[in-house]
């Protein structure tokens, strides 16, 4: 789980082009959207593509992302429970 969290942090920074943010800056329970990392709706869609591509999880309703992408913590828990690759 710890390794997955680190992996997610690095991936999010890379995939979403978060300039000037390092893995060490992101805490496990930081809010990803809104005041936290400040991600927006397109970023959420990009994270949905990432779930599909890297973990074999397909979401059909963008609203599902809301709970999953609250923080690194919630993302890692969801991926661990549902990953197919």
């Amino acid at each position: 789980m710890e390794a997955l969290k680190q992996e997610l942090k690095a991936k999010i920074i890379e995939v979403l082009n978060l300039e000037d943010i390092n893995v060490a800056d992101v805490k496990d329970d930081d809010a990803l959207f809104g005041d936290g990392l400040g991600l927006d709706s397109i970023d959420a869609l990009e994270l949905i593509v990432m779930l599909d591509k890297d973990y074999g999880i397909k979401l059909v309703d963008p609203k599902e992302g809301k709970n999953i992408f609250q923080s690194i913590e919630t993302m890692a828990a969801y991926i661990t429970a549902n990953r197919t690759k």
Binding site: L16, I42, L45, E46, V49, D52
Partner: peptide, 9 residues
């Protein structure tokens, strides 16, 4: 096949 929404925009 993983089209990127962030690119499509």
């Amino acid at each position: 096949y993983f089209p990127s929404p962030a690119v499509f925009v």
